[in-house]
């Protein structure tokens, strides 16, 4: 039970200026209570690494309104037009990475691969300045892995060790981010006794998880 902490205790472990991965796709599968507590904290100059930034003022969108964000690495901010505005005004630095490359770059960081080649974005603005290599007459772009100081992830159930299972399309980037950060904090709907999750169904083995917080509090 050493991994079990309150939402506030978990947020207190994060330092200002950290790079933070956050699992989510739109408002599906995001660590709601952790983000709420992050938005109420004094933490600033954060680099947020996530698929999108929620909606204006909702979910991760709160952090932008609070001026807690220094930089974003992600791929789809169309659902939150305040991101384009902040970027155009030079308030934040946004790095766009195609969604599949983004997912793979996070996975790569978690499995010890510093870079990989992908055909995605070849010939486009997003490939500018990147190394190019030809394999079997096709152009590939070298993409570097993406890691973070902290990952805030959302899962459905955890056992007391920190093994995780997910729920439907709330899975998205969560299992990948669980492998790619120094400090991994999982917010879960329910904590169950160790041994009650089917070992065949565990998606994230507990080796990757440092802290468990329950949505309803402990």
């Amino acid at each position: 039970m050493k991994k079990l902490k309150s939402i506030q205790e978990a947020i207190n472990m994060i330092k200002p200026g950290s790079s933070i991965m956050v699992g989510s796709f739109g408002l599906a599968g995001y660590p709601e209570k952790l983000i709420e507590a992050l938005a109420e904290s004094e933490l600033k100059d954060l680099t947020i690494i996530s698929n999108d930034l929620g909606s204006p003022g909702i979910g991760l969108g709160k952090l932008l309104r609070n001026n807690q964000i220094k930089a974003l690495i992600g791929n789809y901010y169309n659902w939150n037009p305040e991101v384009a505005m902040a970027n155009n005004e030079g308030k934040i630095k946004v790095t766009l990475v195609p969604q599949g490359t983004f997912a793979e770059a996070i996975r790569a960081a978690g499995v010890g691969i510093p870079a990989f080649f992908t055909p995605t974005s070849a010939g486009t603005d997003l490939a500018q300045g990147k190394e190019i290599k030809i394999f079997n007459e096709r152009t590939y772009i070298m993409e570097e892995s993406i890691k973070a100081d902290v990952a805030l992830i959302r899962a459905y159930k955890a056992d007391e060790l920190g093994n995780l299972v997910y729920y439907k399309t709330a899975r998205n980037f969560n299992p990948l981010m669980a492998m790619a950060a120094n400090l991994v904090i999982a917010e879960v709907d329910e904590i169950v006794p160790t041994g009650t999750l089917d070992p065949e169904c565990i998606v994230t083995p507990h080796i990757f998880v440092d802290v468990i917080t329950a949505k309803e509090g402990i």
Partner: peptide
């Protein structure tokens, strides 16, 4: 460019893959 939207999503992955 310089519009109200900033996002690539999976479009580049989908057309190449």
């Amino acid at each position: 460019p310089n519009g109200k939207q900033l996002g690539v999503g999976g479009a580049m992955d989908l057309v190449s893959g």
